Computed example of a mutant assay.
Amino acid sequence: MSLTRTETAQQGAAAASSSSPGLHRQLRLHSVLAFGLAYLAPIIVLGTFGVISEKSHGGIAGSYLIALVAMLLTATSYGRLAREIPVAGSAYSYVRRTLSDHLGFLVGWGSMLDYVFIPMVIWLIGASYLNAQFPAVPNWAWILMFIVSTTALNILGIRVADKANLLLLAVEVLVIALFTIFAIYAVSHHGRSLLSSAPLTGKPFNVLALSAGAATAAYSFLGFDAVTTLTEETVDAKRTIPRAIMLTALVGGGIFIVSTYFIELVHPLIKVVDVDSA
Rank of each mutant, 00 (worst) to 15 (best):
A82V: 13
E233C: 03
A164K: 08
V137T: 09
V227W: 00
A170L: 05
P204V: 01
F182L: 10
T180F: 03
G50C: 06
A132I: 08
L168P: 05
Y39Q: 05
L144F: 09
I257V: 02
M71T: 14
T74A: 15
R83K: 12
R83Y: 13
V160M: 11
A41M: 11
R83T: 15
G36Y: 00
F224A: 01
G202M: 00
K55H: 09
A152H: 05
G12L: 09
T180W: 03
A141G: 10
V207N: 03
Y39N: 04
A177P: 06
L178G: 14
S188K: 07
F105A: 13
A9L: 07
L153H: 04
N154S: 10
A141T: 06
L178Q: 08
T150N: 11
G126Q: 06
V137E: 10
V251R: 01
V235I: 06
V272W: 14
P119I: 14
I125Q: 11
F146N: 09
H267E: 09
I125A: 07
G252F: 04
V32C: 02
A164Y: 04
T151A: 15
A186G: 04
L37A: 06
L174V: 10
L194I: 05
S31R: 04
P135H: 15
D274C: 10
L46E: 03
L113G: 13
A61S: 14
S111I: 14
I263D: 02
H189Y: 06
A132F: 14
L99Q: 08
T201C: 05
V272S: 08
A237G: 03
A38T: 09
D236V: 03
L169M: 04
V175A: 14
S18I: 00
I122L: 15
V251N: 00
T260M: 08
W140G: 06
I60D: 01
L37F: 04
V137D: 13
L27H: 01
S188G: 00
A91D: 11
Y78L: 14
A183I: 01
H267F: 08
S220L: 00
H267I: 12
T240F: 00
V187A: 03
P138Q: 07
A34M: 01
F182N: 04
A67L: 09
A127P: 08
S111H: 11
I52T: 06
Y115G: 15
L113H: 13
I155P: 05
F262G: 04
I245V: 12
T76W: 15
N131T: 14
T234I: 04
V251E: 01
Y94W: 11
S259P: 01
M71V: 15
P42H: 07
K238P: 08
R83E: 13
D162L: 09
F105R: 08
